[in-house]
Design a protein around this nucleic acid. Sequence first.
DNA 1: TAGATTGTTAATCGATTAACAATC
DNA 2: TAGATTGTTAATCGATTAACAATC
Lengths: 208, 208
Amino acid sequence: MNTLPGKTIGRLSEYRRTLLNCLAQGKTHIYSHELANLQNITAVQVRRDIMLIGYSTTLKKGYDVKDLIKVIGEIIDTDDGLNAAIIGIGNLGRAIATYFKGKRTKLKIVATFDTDSGKINRVISGVKCYPMSDLSAIIKDQNISIAILTVPPEYASPVAETLVMAGIKGILNYTSTALNVSSNVYLEEYDMITSLEKVAYFVKEKNA
Amino acid sequence: MNTLPGKTIGRLSEYRRTLLNCLAQGKTHIYSHELANLQNITAVQVRRDIMLIGYSTTLKKGYDVKDLIKVIGEIIDTDDGLNAAIIGIGNLGRAIATYFKGKRTKLKIVATFDTDSGKINRVISGVKCYPMSDLSAIIKDQNISIAILTVPPEYASPVAETLVMAGIKGILNYTSTALNVSSNVYLEEYDMITSLEKVAYFVKEKNA
DNA sequence: TAGATTGTTAATCGATTAACAATC
DNA sequence: TAGATTGTTAATCGATTAACAATC
C-alpha cells in the first residue's frame, strides 16, 4: 500500500470513530452518504477515501461497519502498537492524557515528563510522571516513538532536540514555537491561538 | 479586501507572533527568507502571503517588522475586538484560558461555562465560570460571538445548537463530535486523537 | 425493470512553487 | 555595476468534485 495523503488519514481516523459509534448503536451497515452526513462531507469523498484503502463491498446495502473498522485499523494502526509520551504535564498535557484513558487503541501513552518536583513520580491522569532529566533514558527504555509536546514555548526547541537525539520518530507540537527537526522525524504542529484567530477572521468576514 | 484563504490567515497569525518575538529582540527589519526559516516554509510563500494582504516595502532591506505587525493586525483583527467564551472548563478549557492570559490581542475570553457546581461562580484560569443554564443569557449580555467548545463529546451537539440559537457567530470545536451548524456560523474543528493517529501513521510509513 | 448505490476516471478547483522582471 | 531581494505571473502539484458506467 502506497503512503496515503495526510488528509485522507485524518478522515479515516474520523470515519473509524464514527463507525464505532454506529456499531455501539447496533448498526451493521452504512451507506456512503450516511457516513458523509455524520462527518459533514460529501459521499463521493467517503467513497474515494475507501477506494484508496482498497476496500469495497459487493452488496449495494452500504459498507459492513465491522469490516470497515477492521480495514481502517489495518491501514492506520501498527500491528504491535506504538508508545507515546507527553512532555510537559500542565493542563493541556492532562487533557490529552485523560482523552486517551479507556480508549482502546494501538497507541499507548506510557509516560509523561515535567520539571515540577511536585509532579514527578506521581501518576497524573493515569500516567506516571518522570523528571525531564530522565527523558532520553526512558524514551529508549520504554521504546517510545511519539512525543506530544506541551511545554512552555521557550523550552520547545531544546526539548525537541533532546527528543530527536533520543530517537523519537514523530512529534506532535502543541507549543507556539515552530520547530525545525531533521526530515526523518515526522512533525505535526497545531496552535490553538492561530485557530482561534482564524475563527475570529472568518466571523468578521461573514458579517462584513 | 477580498476574503483570504484560510491557510493564508493561519500563516499570517503565525507570522505576527514570530514578528512580535523579533521585535522584542530588537530586530527592526526582516527578510522574507528569514521569516520563512523561522516558520519552516519557503520565502516565496511568505512573499506571496504578504502580497495578498497588499503590503509591500520600498527598501530591499526586508520588511519593517513593526509595520508588518500592524498591517497583519488590520487584516485579522476587528477594530473593536471580539468576545469569546469557553464552554466546558475542564483541563482543555483551562489550558486555553491560561494560554490567553496576558496575551494582548483583540480577542478576549470573557466567560466560561460548566455544569459542575464546584466551579460555578469561581474565577478559573482568570475567567469567571457561569452555570451552563445561563449560556444564552450571558452570550447575549456580554456580546460573545465566538465559542470554544470543550465539553464531553455527548454534549457537543445540543450545546452547539444552544450556542447557535443564542447568536454565536463562530465555533471552535475541540470535541470529537463532528458538528452540523447553519452555514452562517463559521465552524472550525480540531481533534487531538486524529492528529495523534496521523502522526502514528506517518511514523509507521517512514519506518516501513 | 427503475431506482439507488458504488467505484472510478476525468475535470475542476485551490494552493504551492518555479521562474523571472524590476529594483535597490 | 554585481548581487541580493522583492513582487508577481505562470506552471505545477495535490485535493475535491462532477460525471458516469457498472451493479444490485
